[in-house]
Design a protein around this nucleic acid. Structure first.
Length: 273
DNA sequence: GTACTTGTTGAACG
DNA sequence: TCGTTCAACAAGTA
């Protein structure tokens, strides 16, 4: 499940490997993955040179030298792997480069997608989607975070963190880890959080996401980075996927509950309601 | 066969 | 209006 750290890991790797590469053609095996008319997509991509790869929320943006950008979201099980070969029945899109390399898109669940956007329209796209601020941006301050938390007084903190319209890039795994480190119960409504707690959560967001990027993300299920390798943050998870285990801090029981159809993991002792 | 999983959007509901 | 829950997308695992 690629969240911000996984997508950022892929972005850094792809940016290094793809910048300057020329796409010779693209093979689309499952047309529904491409949300732009297929003919137009292929035509705009073929022959283009890649300028670089950026990220906004969990989206990757591959900027071409012809005024177009390829926007892709991996959703739950998308993988972008740069290789000379290796294709499976879950391979839905293949980019062929002039130098013989390929970029392979695998997606077990087929929820991910690609679309073409005019590069100049990219900022507008995210404005229209009302995507929240980037938590790792240098200018994302504690005051900013306090303001958006105050904006949704009745929302529960776990769901609040997972909604990309509030703050970008945080999903189920990292919201659990952030709240654990912060000693905050996932069901706490925002308006019950003391300023000191909001500050701790703010710091935990920066810390956990930065650390997870350092370990190239979490491979809980299908996630692989652009080299086809697993992320190493999995072993460092404190609560996610550890139901009934003991809390590494206090020894208490780790519990799993349902919040809005998603599972939340937390320590019964460290994270009181 | 059934339940469960997840990112995101959109609909239904109180 | 706001927030919550559910459905939908899909396919593999327990």
């Amino acid at each position: 499940m690629p969240e911000l750290p996984e997508v950022e890991t892929i972005r850094r790797q792809l940016d290094k490997m793809l910048a300057g590469q020329i796409i010779s053609r693209v093979e689309v095996r499952l047309p529904k993955i491409i949300k732009t008319p297929l003919g137009a997509f292929k035509k705009s991509v073929a022959g283009a040179k890649i300028k670089g790869v950026t990220r906004r929320a969990k989206n990757l943006i591959i900027e071409l030298n012809n005024g177009w950008s390829i926007l892709t979201h991996l959703k739950l099980t998308g993988q972008l792997i740069y290789k000379p070969a290796a294709v499976s029945k879950h391979t839905h899109v293949i980019f062929y480069f002039r130098d013989g390399h390929q970029l392979i898109y695998n997606d077990l669940r087929q929820f991910g997608y690609f679309k073409l956007i005019k590069t100049e329209d990219v900022p507008d796209f995210f404005l229209k989607e009302k995507i929240g601020p980037e938590p790792l941006a240098k200018d994302f301050s504690l005051a900013d975070f306090m303001a958006i938390v105050k904006n949704k007084p009745r929302a529960r903190i776990k769901q609040f963190l997972m909604d990309p319209k509030n703050i970008a890039g945080i999903g189920n795994i990292y919201s659990d880890e952030i709240l654990f480190v912060s000693c905050v119960h996932p069901l706490r409504p925002n308006q019950t959080l003391k300023p000191a707690e909001v500050k701790v959560i703010y710091q935990a967001i920066k810390k956990i996401l930065t650390e997870a990027i350092k370990y190239r993300g979490t491979s809980a299920n299908d996630y692989l980075d652009a080299h086809g390798q697993e992320g190493k943050f999995f072993q460092r998870l404190k609560v996610y996927g550890r139901e009934d285990e003991n809390c590494p801090v206090c020894g208490g029981k780790i519990k799993r509950i349902k919040i809005g159809g998603r599972s939340a993991h937390f320590c019964l002792k460290c994270q009181r309601p």
